[in-house]
């Protein structure tokens, strides 16, 4: 147990961050259902890096316009807005180019991941934003302990918008993911539905990354849903396990961080990764003999 702080004090200090992490985890746990089924796992990793690039670019632009990064910022220079726009555009773009023949989707994802990481590092090396480098570093590697109020509100608004719209469009999103050609043949606008899904993922990754860091976001998008698919054979079961598993991993990561005085983001990912052997054991136990 941490010798310097009580659990009550910990909650008073980090309550908002814990709630934000659990909300981000729920959002990512839900979207992970589509990310894993559509085999887009590394797209979510690339989107986290792109969100980081958007934030770094926002800080750099702000420095040219004389904006104090810790004061209210005009919308067009807001690092979060730039992260949202970049992530949304790249997510939609990756969805489009994956349909172009002679293009390997993995290599495009690698291109997005590597180029955004490299450019972010180059931007952070600029003497104009050296003071903000630690903030972008937290964003990329995950440090969910301090969530600003405006980031929390952004996360709540995006999560509510995405989850509410997906309640109505879920059957269509699943149909287009399962068999795009048949969906289009029966008259559904499959290209627009796919675009909506990709933009949903892009925007969700951007705001969640800002609130809890790229590493936990990537982990929550892939690990709980993958384990849930191992453990359950129904859509509802997979969704329930994935969402609740991601939320539990977020809470568990915070708790272990408090107890062991270790970084929160990696502990959240470790908790989510622990579902895999559990799911595999459950699967083995259920196998008919």
């Amino acid at each position: 147990m941490s010798p310097t702080i009580s659990l009550a004090d910990f909650w008073a200090l980090f309550g908002n961050a814990i709630i934000a992490a659990m909300l981000g985890a729920a959002l990512c746990g839900y979207l992970g259902f589509f990310v894993v089924l559509r085999r887009l796992a590394f797209v979510s990793a690339a989107l986290g890096q792109i969100a980081g690039l958007g934030v770094a670019f926002g800080f750099l632009l702000g420095s040219y316009f004389g904006v104090d990064p810790h004061a209210p910022t005009p919308v067009y220079l807001d690092p979060v807005v730039l992260a949202l726009v970049l992530s949304g555009l790249v997510s939609a773009g990756l969805g489009y180019v994956s349909r172009v023949e002679r293009t390997s989707p993995e290599s495009l994802v690698a291109l997005a991941y590597l180029s955004s990481t490299a450019i972010t590092i180059l931007l952070l090396a600029s003497p104009r934003i050296v003071q903000e480098a630690h903030e972008v570093g937290d964003l990329l590697f995950g440090n969910a302990v301090a969530v600003r109020r405006e980031h929390f509100i952004e996360l709540v608004v995006v999560a509510a918008a995405v989850l509410c719209s997906h309640v109505f469009l879920f059957k269509d999103l699943l149909f287009v993911s399962f068999d795009r050609d048949m969906a289009q043949t029966v008259g559904l606008p499959s290209v627009k539905i796919e675009l909506f899904l990709h933009v949903s993922i892009g925007i969700s990754v951007a705001v969640s990354t800002r609130a809890i860091g790229a590493l936990p976001v990537f982990g929550f998008l892939v690990l709980p849903a993958g384990a849930a698919l191992l453990a359950s054979d129904s859509v509802r079961g997979v969704l329930a396990l994935s969402i609740s598993g991601a939320m539990l991993a977020a809470a568990g990561g915070f708790y272990l961080s408090f107890v062991e005085s270790r970084p929160t983001g990696p502990l959240m990912v470790a908790c989510a990764a622990a579902y895999w052997p559990l799911a595999a054991l459950y699967r083995l136990a259920r196998r008919p003999r």
Binding site: D172, F178, L229
Partner: peptide, 19 residues
């Protein structure tokens, strides 16, 4: 058709009515 999806036969057939 990717077999990873946890859909039942009936759920797949129902998709034919989504249009």
């Amino acid at each position: 058709i990717d077999p990873i999806y946890p859909l039942t036969a009936l759920q797949v057939v129902l998709q034919g009515r989504y249009g």
